[in-house]
């Protein structure tokens, strides 16, 4: 079985044969004991392709039990890894990429014509011959959703403690440093001289963290559509936590903080553009805090000002607009507070909107996740398995 005969690639059929007794070893080597960083220099989602090539061989020899057993062990193995690494972004992202890739493979090689339109002739030859795995596709889709939810939970847990200080408290515009509303100057300056406690994250640190998440997901070959959905969900979290704090804290409702917040949101938008994520709908989730920042900056005196505010603040509800106007704190003795009659004017204008009464944003709101079908251009017969993976018990067929 260990005799290796040099064969040309065209002789391979893109399948991997294994002995039934080796199934547990396969799952242990490729899933439960697997370290994602051992395959950084190979084809993205290598474990998914290897598993699929094993499934193909079991299908080819018409062994339904072997197919079912491998798929069940694979799914249970992935669940086990996720449970053990439930706070690890890299491992969770890796298995999201691989389960969704395995799901795509089960579709691409199912023999269903809807999934074959982009296949090469060779890929069509590699379609499953004997079994319809539609029910297992459903299980893998459910599993992928579970992994996605875990990934969001892990990422949110990392960025949540950074959001308030990065978006509302750190001073990323140098010229604005020290310009704070009356009576709040000390709070910020004492934080700066602390030398950075656990709560003093800068905007740069938050963006760097988002960059790390993005880099990991991209390098692991997670579908760009899924990456976009993760980023959108994290941007929703940034928006919700920032806005909720703004709505409860008088000290951040000032003209200069509006300027700071507008700058910070523009940096976030810039990050999306720089990473080709602007189409991901993530930018739209920032609209409420962009409008809140503008609301802090615009004039709030005349009836025309009231009209302008109402047409500007479409992503904030009446309660939120009124609350920000009430909290607005003048920067110095030359600036006036927002008058009661101005706020009434706004309320009258917004009456017809019938906005919901909730003041705070639901930070836990989750957008429904979708895994659009993404076939691969890879030819299975060309797949190279590095010897370092310790899978020499698999026989290329």
């Amino acid at each position: 079985r260990q005799v290796t005969v040099q064969r040309k690639e065209k002789d391979f059929e893109g399948m991997l044969e294994y002995y039934k007794d080796d199934e547990a070893l396969l799952v242990k080597t490729l899933i439960t004991d697997f370290k994602p960083n051992t395959v950084t220099a190979t084809v993205p989602c290598l474990p998914a392709y290897i598993l699929f090539m094993c499934i193909r061989h079991a299908d080819y020899i018409n062994d339904d039990q072997k197919v079912e057993s491998l798929l069940t062990s694979t799914i249970n193995g992935i669940k086990k890894v996720l449970k053990k690494n439930n706070d690890d972004f890299e491992v969770t992202s890796f298995w999201l990429a691989n389960s969704s890739r395995l799901l795509h493979c089960l579709k691409q090689y199912s023999g269903d014509e809807v999934f074959m339109t982009q296949n090469t002739a060779k890929q069509n030859e590699h379609c499953l011959k004997n079994f319809d795995l539609a029910e297992y596709r459903q299980v893998l889709s459910d599993l992928s959703i579970q992994i996605y939810q875990q990934l969001i939970k892990v990422a949110e847990g990392i960025i949540q403690p950074m959001i308030v200080s990065a978006m509302l408290e750190s001073e990323s515009i140098p010229s604005l440093a020290g310009v704070k509303p009356m009576g709040y100057r000390n709070r910020s300056s004492s934080m700066d001289t602390d030398g950075g406690g656990p709560s003093s994250y800068t905007l740069e640190a938050l963006i760097r963290q988002l960059g790390q998440f993005h880099g990991i997901m991209r390098d692991q070959g997670l579908d760009p559509e899924i990456v976009g959905q993760v980023v959108r969900q994290l941007f929703h979290c940034v928006n919700a936590v920032t806005l909720n704090n703004l709505l409860l804290r008088k000290d951040v409702c000032s003209w200069s903080n509006g300027m700071q917040l507008r700058y910070n949101t523009s940096q976030m938008e810039e990050w999306l553009r720089g990473n080709n994520l602007y189409q991901s709908k993530a930018a739209a989730t920032l609209e409420p805090i962009i409008q809140a920042a503008q609301l802090l900056q615009v004039k709030k005196k005349t009836s025309q000002d009231a009209e302008a505010i109402c047409s500007l603040c479409t992503a904030l509800n009446t309660q939120q607009i009124v609350k920000i106007l009430n909290l607005y704190t003048p920067l110095n003795e030359f600036e006036e507070r927002v008058t009661v009659s101005f706020i009434r004017n706004i309320q009258n204008r917004l009456q017809e909107r019938n906005d919901p009464p909730q003041l705070l944003v639901d930070t836990k709101h989750t957008f429904p996740v979708l895994f659009p079908y993404t076939p691969s251009a890879l030819s299975l017969e060309t797949l190279h398995i590095p010897a370092s993976l310790g899978l020499d018990f698999l026989i290329r067929v």
Partner: peptide
């Protein structure tokens, strides 16, 4: 291309059922 012959549908348990089976298997093993 020749039309392929119909494939046999392999019935799969749900994700939750798979987990239950897995747990009971682990309990049985020493």
């Amino acid at each position: 291309r020749l039309p392929s012959r119909p494939r046999i549908l392999l019935k799969a348990p749900t994700l939750a059922e798979m987990e239950e089976m897995n747990i009971s298997e682990e309990e049985e093993s020493p």
